[in-house]
Design a binder for these strands. Structure first.
Lengths: 245, 245
DNA sequence: CGCGAGCTTGATGCCGATCAATGCATGTGG
DNA sequence: CCACATGCATTGATCGGCATCAAGCTCGCG
């Protein structure tokens, strides 16, 4: 039984995991060419998300995961009374929407911090295919597990670090992920506001700003608005590990 | 090459998901009797963990997940410099070890807070079986996703709530989970110390103790050491939602 | 050019950390 | 059975880091 092809507009360029330059960072890690071709048939559509728009909102029905192809996102949860917490920042090759699997509804908002593009991964098809391809299954499980481990790291940060330690840890994490993607490990442009950084780190925007200024005074960073140059990464690392013990 | 059978003592009573009274809370949710029998062949061993002992440590090789059968656990991560953060408390029917999938090593410690018993779920066999049983696959994915959502909730708590709000949220979460397991929603015995609660909530033990006393003074709780009686759950709930806006 | 969003910087105050003493339950050995 | 030790909890006094409040500042953009 051949399925009717879905009436969806295909992007003009070919969408294919098999020749995507992010395949070593994304869902296809560890898959053979043959397997990749089967994944291609699943991930056939991209979606463009302009800066400021939401990819999905908390409460919406869940149907697909999304892989960031280009751009930058934040995810944030909110409590009844309107408190907001940024739970993460996602860049190329990272998956969005894992929170929706448990209840079939998204539980957070995903907002593009710059004009972005995502690959759409229909979730039930992914489940079906990962029952056939154990390498795909394994990689998907690893991605979920690492998200849990990452969250535990954020808890450690929020529960036991001081303001400057939090910002240092945040910056090192960002530069490391950017370096993995071939960018300079010392030069970066923040895509988010001081307020969003603060929300992620459990701080107010003024505190974030002061910490940036302090780092600049101490010669660890060069800060010009959102342009950041890391001058002394080891010193930042020393801050993250306990300098106060 | 037949492997030597591992020298593991099988518990005298029959271990079977199919007739486990926790099957509606645990991995088997949503599975048919036939499917359950296949799961039984996988989950055949239990392990007893005395109070204070670790089920696993960060850094150890990962091989199995564990389902809490009886008892109570905490999980905690530590940074290089020795800072510790309790990342969760697990009770009957909840899974331990999901953090290990991503790197094939555990990334946190799991410690029994009372004499406990867990079912051992060999992970690779679980992967194999979940490729055959889509209901098992679905439930496993839901469990991982819900863990991520739970972690996001903890981040919200750590990032934006005040001390008393955190404790109120913690107590309501505990009572709710106990109620799901058939216990009273108003009477509970804490299995963890003030210090462990504090670590989980990002507070010092003195602050936790003061918050308990405050709740008692205000008539929300009756506190006698670790014996807690909830007198006014709605008031606790009101604290969690923003009373200060 | 002037507006506005976002950022910086200063002054002040409060919440929770820290330091310290006491209380209370459990266990152990004389 | 009592004396004492130990681990955990409570309570008070003080301190400090970050939030809060309040101006200015910078830069991009209509």
């Amino acid at each position: 039984m051949t399925a009717v092809p879905p009436p969806i507009r295909i992007e003009p360029f070919k969408v294919a995991c098999s020749n995507c330059n992010l395949r070593e960072l994304c869902l296809p890690v560890g898959m053979s060419n043959e397997q990749l071709e089967r994944l291609d048939s699943l991930v056939a559509i991209r979606r463009t998300v302009p800066r400021g728009d939401a990819l999905f909102h908390a409460g919406e029905a869940f149907g697909s995961l999304f892989a960031v192809r280009t751009g930058f996102f934040k995810t944030c949860v909110a409590s009844e009374d309107g408190r907001e917490q940024v739970t993460g920042f996602q860049m190329a090759g990272e998956l969005l929407g894992l929170d929706g699997i448990g209840t079939d509804r998204h539980t957070c908002d995903a907002v593009a911090l710059e004009d972005s593009q995502v690959c759409i991964i229909p979730y039930h098809q992914l489940e079906d295919l990962s029952r056939e391809l154990s390498d795909l299954q394994r990689q998907f499980h690893k991605i979920m597990s690492r998200e849990i481990v990452r969250d535990h790291g954020v808890m450690l940060l929020l529960g036991s670090m001081r303001a400057e330690e939090r910002l240092a840890a945040f910056l090192l994490n960002l530069t490391q992920r950017l370096a993995t993607r071939g960018f300079s490990g010392s030069e970066l442009v923040l895509r988010m506001t001081r307020e969003e950084i603060g929300s992620y780190l459990g701080l107010k925007l003024e505190t974030v700003s002061r910490a940036f200024s302090k780092f600049q005074d101490d010669g660890l960073l060069e800060v010009r608005q959102r342009q950041i140059r890391v001058l002394d990464a080891p010193a930042l690392q020393a801050l993250v590990n306990g300098p106060h013990c």
